[in-house]
Amino acid sequence: MLKFYHSPWSRSSGVFWLLEELGQPYEIELVDIRAPGGVPEAYRAVQPNKKVPAIEHDGVVITERAAISVYLADRFHEAGLAPAIGEEARGPYLTTLVYCDSVFDPAISAKAQGWTYQSNNFSFGLFDDMVKYVEKKLTAHPYAAGDTFTAADTQLASGIGFTMNILKVLPALPVFTDYVARISERPAYQRAQARDAELIKQVTPPQF
């Protein structure tokens, strides 16, 4: 059985979308990451920093979005969401998945916090460089890994949509708005969004 540890309207929403794309049965374990008393200490046994997302599949726990995405898309390869090892698109696919966690997210956080720093101060580099890179990538190809939708798009599009439309940190460049609009037409995305809107009623809501 596949268990998904999730908090609505958070970084785990992209994995929620991916699970809907895969079409495999799974159960949701809600984690109230915004609870006044904090996340229960017992959850640390699943995720050492008490963050979401996390999954447990056949007794194995996987954390971190990139790792979860690679695992799920490869494990359920029949969904066609991951280029196979040896395919040309595998490189851009893996690059985008890791980039979302290691560069996109921390650069967004630094910008939101108003940090002033030099490019070599942090491994994720400058916010403006990140924006230019993602803009160039999506200008060259319609999807994160090239010309085909993959699991990488569930993470990149989730990040762009949230930080552009909700947090108002990422600039609403035409290539970003077009990408999110195109992606949001996918039925799996719409199902995940609708379910998140219901699940948020069961946990402490975010203060955006």
Rank of each mutant, 00 (worst) to 15 (best):
L30A: 12
K136T: 14
D128R: 08
Y43V: 00
S184I: 10
Y71G: 13
P8S: 05
H6W: 06
S158N: 07
P142G: 10
A66E: 14
Q118D: 04
N121L: 09
T116G: 01
D147F: 12
P8W: 13
Y26V: 01
A54F: 13
S158V: 00
S69D: 00
A152R: 03
P83A: 05
R191D: 02
Q113V: 04
N120C: 09
A42H: 02
T177M: 04
Q207L: 12
A194P: 01
L2Q: 10
V103G: 00
G86K: 09
L81S: 03
I160M: 04
V180S: 03
A107Y: 01
L97S: 12
R44T: 09
A194G: 10
V31D: 03
T148Y: 00
A84Q: 04
F176S: 02
F16P: 08
Y26C: 09
G37S: 09
A67F: 12
S69L: 10
G37P: 09
Y189L: 04
Y26W: 07
L173I: 10
E88I: 11
E64A: 06
Y93K: 01
E41M: 03
N121E: 12
P206N: 07
S7W: 03
Q24C: 05
A73C: 12
E20I: 14
I28F: 04
T63K: 15
I28R: 02
D196P: 03
I166K: 14
Q193S: 05
L138T: 09
S123K: 14
G161K: 01
L2P: 08
H57E: 11
S109W: 02
A112N: 04
D105R: 15
P142N: 14
I62S: 07
M1L: 10
L167D: 12
T177A: 03
P36N: 15
F208G: 05
Y43F: 13
A82C: 09
D147T: 06
I33C: 09
P25L: 06
S10I: 04
A194L: 08
S7Q: 08
I183D: 00
E88T: 06
A79S: 14
V131I: 12
C100P: 00
Q24M: 15
R44W: 08
W17R: 13
I166S: 14
A151E: 12
V46R: 02
A151N: 13
Q193M: 10
I108M: 05
N120P: 00
L19I: 04
P171I: 15
E21G: 07
S7K: 05
L156P: 04
D105F: 01
H6Q: 13
Q202R: 08
D58P: 01
D129F: 11
F16E: 09
R90T: 10
E56C: 01
L199T: 00
Q202M: 12
P40I: 06
E21Q: 15
N120M: 11
R65H: 07
Q118T: 01
K111N: 02
P174Y: 08
F104K: 14
H6L: 15
R182G: 02
A84M: 03
V203P: 05
G23T: 13
H57Y: 08
P206I: 08
T154H: 08
H6T: 14
V175F: 07
G80T: 01
A66M: 14
G37D: 10
W17I: 11
S123L: 03
D129H: 08
I183K: 00
S69Q: 09
W115Q: 13
L94C: 06
A151R: 08
T163H: 14
I33E: 02
F122T: 06
T95V: 05
I160N: 11
F176Y: 15
V52S: 11
A194T: 04
